[in-house]
Design a protein around this nucleic acid. Structure first.
Lengths: 150, 150
DNA sequence: TCAATTTACTTAACATGTTAATTTAATCCT
DNA sequence: AGGATTAAATTAACATGTTAAGTAAATTGA
């Protein structure tokens, strides 16, 4: 008996959509936190990156936060207006913009830290720690493979 | 002794960013095709979904194309202006909008089909067919786990 | 039966994604 | 040194992402 045609087999788009859908399900759990605190996912990422790197130029931050430079430019304006980020020209290289998080920015993150960690733990518990780690490893492997054959 | 507050390390953002970065690397290979043909990734997804479902209401298309309804509304307007999609009210249920691809829309996809398949094959070759299948399976597993514990 | 609720979209408003063009500064090159 | 090139950001323009509010049609339920 011939196999029934798959209901919606968008074969060539399967991987991009599959990655997108999975990410959406993960983010769904974080969104209430972000919404309640009035920040977008991207603004949150920028703050988190800046908290770790102390000071970095825009390109580096964009790379680490997985954002495009034009998006980052706008986000920095917003975060800067909120007093959470300070940006200034690099005295060594006038083309670069150096970014750093302010103490207010740190305070904002600290206030959300517990709740954020709790959500992540729930996600890990739902997926299973082993499965989660397997997925992470696999994603790194896939990225390396895609970069090597560019 | 009370547990110390969890450090705000990037691990909490690791999964969303990892999925995002991987998806970006995959899409990077498709983007030249989309750019050359003057469609966005989302417009392409809508056309591909409509090609397979024949006719469907907006909610179903949004779900399958992984788009939000407000986005779909705008995309349909664009595709409709281009003559690639036809939209009309469902006579059975006046709330629903039925969508279908036109013959021009099909011709557009047919013209790109060969090139699109070639790109996907390159991606599969770069990742390795086995690894790709493992990833796909894992992503489905993770999604199911996240949905079950909602 | 009809007011209240739900459903399916659409609009609106603002933020980001994406590509191209522009600006300014650093670096190359002869 | 100084014109050409490259590099880093920004700006611009248009499309989508995201949440909230609005609209019209269908369904509920007393």
């Amino acid at each position: 008996m011939p196999k029934a045609p798959p209901p919606l087999d968008v074969t060539q788009l399967a991987l991009p959509i599959s990655l997108l859908r999975t990410r959406e399900l993960v983010m769904e759990r974080f969104r209430p936190l972000l919404l309640a605190r009035g920040v977008t996912e991207q603004q949150w990422r920028v703050l988190r990156v800046l908290e770790e790197v102390k000071s970095a130029d825009a390109s580096t931050v964009a790379d680490h936060a997985c954002l495009m430079l034009p998006s980052l430019t706008r986000i920095i304006r917003t975060l800067s207006d909120a007093g959470w980020v300070d940006s200034h020209k690099d005295p060594e290289d006038g083309r670069r913009t150096l970014l750093e998080i302010t103490s207010d920015g740190r305070a904002f993150l600290a206030d959300a830290a517990h709740e954020s960690a709790a959500i992540y733990n729930e996600i890990e518990a739902a997926i299973g720690p082993d499965t989660l780690e397997t997925l992470q490893t696999l994603l790194v492997t896939v990225r390396r493979a895609l970069k090597e054959t560019d």
